[in-house]
Design a protein around this nucleic acid. Structure first.
Length: 276
DNA sequence: CATCAGGCGAGAC
DNA sequence: GTCTCGCCTGAT
């Protein structure tokens, strides 16, 4: 187990911010004042995390933490500094950032983000999680931790490309079934090169992602932000759009925040989501 | 029963 | 290029 103290880190806020669909809160033990425990399945691994007021514990070795999770949770970035960039006159943004100050932009797997955000469109968080969990259990490799916990890896492109369209429809993915099928085939056949995408700048990567079936501007921005860590990407969905109209009738000041616009978008998204 | 949820693609113009 | 419309499913 690795325990750290870290400002601007709340696993609960990260969980609720809806950027990661395979991070979930574990049921609390009855009667005991148990700290909050979460389970994450990512990068082919399974990790449990426990958080107290100012301490976060990762149930893994120091080596795994240093090599994998430190980067995954973007722990090298100074989020206090990013929040400090906010215009003092912008009380709305300051309040949103303060409210969600424990959020971090996770460095998630590109392929998983492509499929996950295709699933997310015109959909709610609960069903998104359900759909993805079902895809993993049906098409992902079953694995086991040293302590015997079973979990499923996210399905690889070849596994999803091999799934018949009717079978995907049977997973209750709705019209997104066709998008997933076509996208999986595109990637499996090498029409879109995931490794090449990782070397591209934001604009080029976004343009390339838009070639995938079921990936429009909004989904491409989400993939850039969470799957390629292009923190200048600013996904505009129906909620963010309403906030922009209400709070920024003259337009959001992108020029002011440059490559941190996407991080700020997450504070706004989370604030708007939770304050309802 | 209607509406909506973290949009997108296809077709019309 | 911009606009409209239909789309799977499940929750409210």
């Amino acid at each position: 187990m690795v325990t750290i103290k870290k400002d601007h880190f709340s696993i609960g806020q990260i969980c609720d911010s809806g950027q990661c669909f395979r991070l979930e809160k574990l049921a609390e033990k009855e009667g005991v004042e148990e700290k909050e425990r979460y389970a994450l399945t990512a990068l082919g691994r399974y990790l449990e995390i426990k958080q107290a007021a100012d301490e976060i514990s990762f149930f893994c070795t120091q080596e795994e933490f240093d090599q994998i999770w430190k980067s995954y949770f973007d722990l090298e970035e100074d989020y206090g500094r990013i929040i400090g960039l906010i215009d003092r006159e912008d009380s709305y943004l300051a309040k949103a950032a303060s409210y969600g100050s424990g959020i971090r932009i996770l460095k998630q797997d590109l392929w998983e983000m492509i499929i996950s955000f295709i699933v997310s469109q015109q959909n709610n968080l609960r069903r998104i999680r359900k759909c993805i969990s079902f895809l993993c259990s049906r098409y992902g490799e079953e694995k086991q931790t040293p302590s015997g916990i079973r979990y499923y890896d996210f399905p690889k492109p070849d596994a999803l490309a091999a799934a018949p369209l009717e079978e995907l429809y049977a997973c209750n993915l709705g019209y997104r079934s066709r998008y997933i099928h076509n996208t999986a085939v595109s990637v499996f056949e090498g029409e879109i090169d995931l490794e090449a995408l990782k070397t591209m700048d934001y604009e080029s990567a976004k343009e390339e992602l838009l070639r995938l079936c079921g990936v429009g501007v909004k989904v491409a921005e989400c993939i850039c932000l969470f799957g390629l860590h292009k923190t200048e990407a600013f996904p505009i969905d129906t909620h963010i759009n309403k906030v922009l109209c209400r709070q920024y009738p003259g337009g959001f000041p992108f020029e002011k925040y440059g490559r941190y616009a996407g991080t700020l978008q997450q504070y706004i998204f989370y604030y708007d989501l939770m304050e309802k």
